[in-house]
């Protein structure tokens, strides 16, 4: 079964931006993360609608208008970012009921 990536805490995040760097505060961890444009776009895409890895890759390729000869490498980067964002606790792979984490 394919992983379903999503952003359960999107409404709780705070963010700001300077010079193409995004600063995202996660109240569940108390950490402020420095993210690049690609990571922010992935989070926004998953916040709009949860999806699997292939769907995320496809949508990001469209959004970023990646040339055909660069799509394979870009898709690999997307997958790596998904796992990294999940590791940081910013997105979820749906393996546990993370809705419990949403601050009230």
């Amino acid at each position: 079964m394919e992983t379903l990536w999503r952003v359960p805490l999107i409404k709780a995040f705070s963010r700001t931006c300077w010079n193409d760097e995004y600063f995202l505060f996660n109240p569940a961890s108390g950490y402020t993360h420095v993210l690049n444009q690609l990571s922010i776009d992935i989070i926004d895409l998953l916040a709009e609608s949860p999806c699997g890895t292939r769907d995320a890759q496809s949508r990001m390729i469209d959004t970023w208008r990646i040339d055909a000869d660069e799509q394979a490498g870009f898709a690999q980067r997307i997958e790596e970012h998904l796992h990294q964002l999940c590791y940081l606790g910013l997105i979820s792979d749906g393996t546990f009921d993370d809705t419990l984490l949403i601050p009230r």
Binding site: A12, S14, T16, F23, F25, P27, G30, Y31, T32
Partner: peptide, 14 residues
């Protein structure tokens, strides 16, 4: 006490 302040602290520094 930045982590303890949560979003309030983030927005204050911002």
């Amino acid at each position: 006490n930045y982590p303890l302040q949560g979003r309030r602290g983030f927005h204050a520094v911002d």
